[in-house]
């Protein structure tokens, strides 16, 4: 433990990131530049999220890390281990127990509370990037609320596929002002981001940007009047816990075409399974 400063980053760096976080919370949805540091993990593994988590962590915090909703994937396990080693904090797999949840793709199915913070790992913070590659131009578009281009993408989806085929990183409007990319979360989670009691922080390490949604921020998904926003629906319910209405992963079970659908949120699924087990007595 003593080989590291608390939570790996030095105090000046954490102070710098906290300043960026304060600004981000003050201007919901606005991308605040920050001096992102090299982290002992590759870009794309959540260097932005890790820096945000490191800056807000206190010794009493209980950390949960999920990747694609699962607690037991490589990314989640190694980030949990990283903070256990450098900050000696407690970690958990239970959504209710955690005070900070760092996530790559999902918002937990269990509703979040006011005393929790959700930290997102963001690969590309700029929602307009793929239509307008010039950063000088996209910054102006944000500054002048010149957002026609975002709808061009949705228009293109409908004209090519008959419906809005964007299923993840679905652009949202924050408090009627900034268009924001909710990171690579599936659009299924967009309604959970809206009016969420927990503080939501977004960190993009390679792109050196931080943005935030304070608790109870109004977040609306962009759409057309005649093609309203919709979330994904599944015919099946979870094979393991039997719950329907959660975000399901398709899992191949053999090489003969066998497949099952299971909850992507492993903690939620486990809880449902044990409840069912108790009911059955």
């Amino acid at each position: 433990m003593s080989e590291y400063n608390f939570a790996y980053l030095n105090e000046q760096t954490k102070k710098m990131i906290r300043r960026a976080l304060l600004k981000a919370v003050a201007i919901p949805g606005y991308q605040v530049p920050f001096a992102s540091r090299e982290m002992p993990m590759p870009y794309g593994w959540g260097t932005g999220g890790v820096q945000v988590t490191a800056s807000i962590l206190t010794p009493d915090d209980i950390l949960k890390v999920i990747d694609q909703g699962a607690d037991d994937t490589t990314n989640a396990v190694s980030i949990r281990k990283f903070f256990k080693k450098t900050a000696a904090i407690e970690t958990t797999e239970l959504s209710e127990q955690a005070t900070i949840i760092q996530t790559r793709h999902r918002v937990p199915e269990t509703p979040l509370r006011e005393d929790q913070i959700l930290v997102y790992q963001v690969p590309i913070p700029e929602p307009l990037r793929f239509l307008e590659p010039r950063e000088t131009e996209t910054r102006k578009m944000h500054a002048y609320e010149d957002y026609g281009l975002m709808h061009v993408k949705l228009y293109e989806d409908i004209s090519q596929h008959g419906h809005i085929s964007t299923t993840y990183a679905y652009p949202v409007m924050v408090e009627g002002r900034y268009v924001m990319d909710p990171s690579p979360t599936p659009k299924f989670d967009n309604p959970k981001i809206n009016n969420c009691p927990a503080l939501q922080l977004f960190g993009a390490g390679r792109e050196k940007r931080i943005y935030a949604l304070p608790p109870y921020t109004k977040v609306t998904s962009l759409d057309f009047e005649d093609h309203p926003f919709e979330v994904q629906k599944w015919q099946a319910s979870c094979e393991l816990c039997g719950t329907s209405g959660t975000f399901l992963d398709e899992v191949i079970t053999d090489d003969k075409g066998g497949r099952i659908f299971v909850c992507s949120d492993t903690d939620f699924c486990r809880k449902q399974q044990s409840e069912k087990f108790e009911e059955a007595g």
């Binding site: 957002y147 281009l149 709808h151 993408k153 228009y155 293109e156 409908i158 057309f224 009047e225 093609h227």
Partner: peptide, 23 residues
């Protein structure tokens, strides 16, 4: 915009002027 369809090219200005009805 060479990477979006002809329709989107014509529609861009309309969408920039707050047209929000695809049809």
């Amino acid at each position: 915009r060479m990477n979006v369809s002809a329709g989107a090219n014509i529609g861009e200005r309309l969408m920039a002027n707050n047209w929000r009805h695809y049809g």
